[in-house]
């Protein structure tokens, strides 16, 4: 999927001199912003509001589509992975053990945390990609 998107070149509005530094700064900010917005929306809205958050952030912050995908992916990977790992740790992995047997047929809390993180990441990645592509097509047209 990522390969298919590579030929596109996102709109570049930043100063060429600081390109490298600002690009990675921008990227980190995007990741953090997506995570923050996802967390905030989920306080009031259903879980799929993470898609709205990732979509909105990548719509506003111009980046190459594949970078957007990566930022959305990573952002939710960290948020969902981090949250579930923290919650599970506080719980001595009591529930994660039971649920992992139910869902994965294996008493493995880590695997359940990984699965949680990946589900969030995939949704976040695609939502961010959609946002980025939308911005790109609107700009071009």
């Amino acid at each position: 999927m990522v390969n298919a998107i590579l030929p596109f070149d996102g709109p570049c509005t930043l100063n060429q001199n600081n390109k490298k530094l600002t690009h990675s700064m921008k990227w980190i900010i995007t990741v953090l912003l997506t995570a923050l917005l996802s967390f905030a929306l989920c306080l009031f809205l259903p879980w799929w509001s993470i898609a709205i958050a990732a979509f909105a952030v990548s719509l506003c912050i111009p980046m190459k589509p594949w970078k957007s995908f990566l930022s959305g992916f990573l952002s939710l990977l960290i948020l969902w992975g981090g949250l579930s790992a923290w919650i599970s740790g506080e719980n001595n992995h009591l529930l994660a053990g039971k649920i992992s047997v139910l869902i994965l047929n294996d008493n493995n809390p880590f695997l359940l945390i990984l699965m949680t993180a990946c589900i969030g990441a995939v949704v976040g990645g695609f939502a961010a990609l959609s946002g980025s592509l939308l911005r790109y097509s609107v700009h071009k047209s």
Binding site: W47, W80, L95, L112, M115, T116
Partner: peptide, 22 residues
């Protein structure tokens, strides 16, 4: 077989039922 997103969302799903030890 299960709504995995809804179920595993750390802010909505089963994680919310993981009661802290303390």
């Amino acid at each position: 077989p299960a709504p995995l997103g809804k179920l595993l969302s750390p802010q909505h799903g089963v994680w919310q039922n993981a009661e802290p030890m303390e």
